[in-house]
Design a protein around this nucleic acid. Sequence first.
DNA 1: TCTTGACAGACGTCTGACAAGTTAAGATGG
DNA 2: CCATCTTAACTTGTCAGACGTCTGTCAAGA
Lengths: 247, 247
Amino acid sequence: MSARGRSRPTVAVQLREEIRTLIAELGLVAGDRVPSEAELVDRFSVSRPSLREALKLLEEDGTLLAVHGRGRFVSGRAMLSVERPITHFESVGAMAAACGYSLSSRVVGFETVPATERRAAMLGVEDGAPLLAVARIRGHEGRDLVYSLDLIACEGLGAIGEAADWADSVNSALVLRGIEPVMARAAASATHLPTEAAAKHGLEDFGPALLIEETAYTATGRAVLHSLVYHRGDAFRFSFARTPNAR
Amino acid sequence: MSARGRSRPTVAVQLREEIRTLIAELGLVAGDRVPSEAELVDRFSVSRPSLREALKLLEEDGTLLAVHGRGRFVSGRAMLSVERPITHFESVGAMAAACGYSLSSRVVGFETVPATERRAAMLGVEDGAPLLAVARIRGHEGRDLVYSLDLIACEGLGAIGEAADWADSVNSALVLRGIEPVMARAAASATHLPTEAAAKHGLEDFGPALLIEETAYTATGRAVLHSLVYHRGDAFRFSFARTPNAR
DNA sequence: TCTTGACAGACGTCTGACAAGTTAAGATGG
DNA sequence: CCATCTTAACTTGTCAGACGTCTGTCAAGA
């Protein structure tokens, strides 16, 4: 399965967004009834099956609740909508930009290390296999906001290049090598920076950090990147929705 | 919108589960091609539109990826599955139990306070309206693991009762009063305990805390509880999946 | 006042047809 | 023999139309 994207969204996907917009325009809130299928078919000039497919997407993502014989209703879930939730896969740079930070980045570590047993398991490589370790500090207006350590499996990577190639975005550097991380499995906890890193890079006043440790995968499920990202506690706040059936 | 459930699942919902089972039975993993629509129609003896609706559910929940003209494939998203992700709405006690902690709880603050402007907005009450503030410390085997402050709108609450009524679970206490929180909008950040709280309750060695600040809602979208929950950094780790289309 | 039946509205499911994208096999030309 | 083009087959995407089932409302009858 090559990672070729679709050039044009299907009617169903497009409609899903248009219905979302309509719900907002009509000012519908949790419990309110959505226009009927017949009305929506007229309004959007599409066939009923296509509309139903779009509605199915919205039912599955928790926006709508269908009741046979009565209609569809806005689910309370819709009001939990969060722009760029913690569950959104994106680069640290993009995330920070959305928070109003323009991050400049410097590489403070760039070496090849053998994979520990744990890291090997995370990245699906052999114990002891070579990993590229990139340590970076990113900041905004002279203030350090993020310390991160990225571990990339060298296997299949091709030429490693120079530290500067990886300074701004490890994701982008991987994409340039034909490896596109698109999703990740992550865990968050509160901690301090590693003592050694703090001392070595003058980060003693970093304060509590929100550590997100994550393994990133390509669309085909190949693990390509293991990151430990320490976000300065007083600079970042990650939003998300909590629901009973979240998986 | 009454919470009356449907007595019989639709064909689409039923099929969704049957297709999931089939994928597992066929041993399909990320990137593998799923049988075509025609094949599935034959196999499950349903109409094609119904099948497509079921497939739409699976596409929306990230299990499948459809490519026009080529077929559908098992998405790598399935491998990000996390048991009890941070996005799962549940009580702190239930979450901690899943982490192997049996929390005992003590109330260290119990009073009615007027809502600040921010809190009033969070809870959909008037500025200055009375809120019940419940401060608790929860621990396991003599070690304090969670400090929390819960703010509940007094309006519609009925009798407040005693502190002991709210000691174990604010959620449960609310349910007993006919108010069922079922979902929340939350944000996480790394911080220290409030200085005053730490000093007052002997929590100076709590260390970095993962603060989850959340507003809980009923199914109809009514905000009923605003909580600040400080999780001891070295005791808790919150997992989640990150995908490009996460909202 | 309560029960039952009819009716309208709404979702659920099906059949059939055509459109658009992909791939593999066969034909053709160099 | 190899490269390129064409075509048919396969697959998903979309549409039109019809019928089935469920829900709520209203009217009539007991």
